[in-house]
């Protein structure tokens, strides 16, 4: 991952945040008033999926590959 790619991704987020705050549109949900909600949702959601699933695997689900043999 080089710097150029990161800059493009950063720019995309900035543009989407600017659009989100400048354009007013009819909002259906309470969370639409939280700034950058979907950025936080993506980051926290992804982290939570990784950590919780790994934790479940460790404490409950994972077995050796020959478990069923």
């Amino acid at each position: 991952m080089n710097q150029k790619t990161w800059s493009i991704l950063g720019l995309l987020v900035v543009v989407s945040l600017v659009l989100e705050t400048t354009l007013t549109y009819e909002s259906d949900h309470w969370w639409d008033s939280i700034p950058a909600f979907y950025s936080l949702f993506g980051f926290i959601g992804c982290t939570a999926i990784i950590l919780i699933s790994k934790w479940l695997g460790k404490v409950l689900l994972q077995r050796r590959e020959d478990y069923y043999d």
Binding site: S16, L17, L19, S39, L40, G42, F43, C46, T47, I50
Partner: peptide
């Protein structure tokens, strides 16, 4: 579009970290 872009980019960032 803004919703999708934010979710996808930040999911990528979290993936890269973890």
């Amino acid at each position: 579009l803004t919703e999708s872009v934010q979710i996808l980019v930040l999911t990528f960032v979290a993936f890269w970290m973890f």
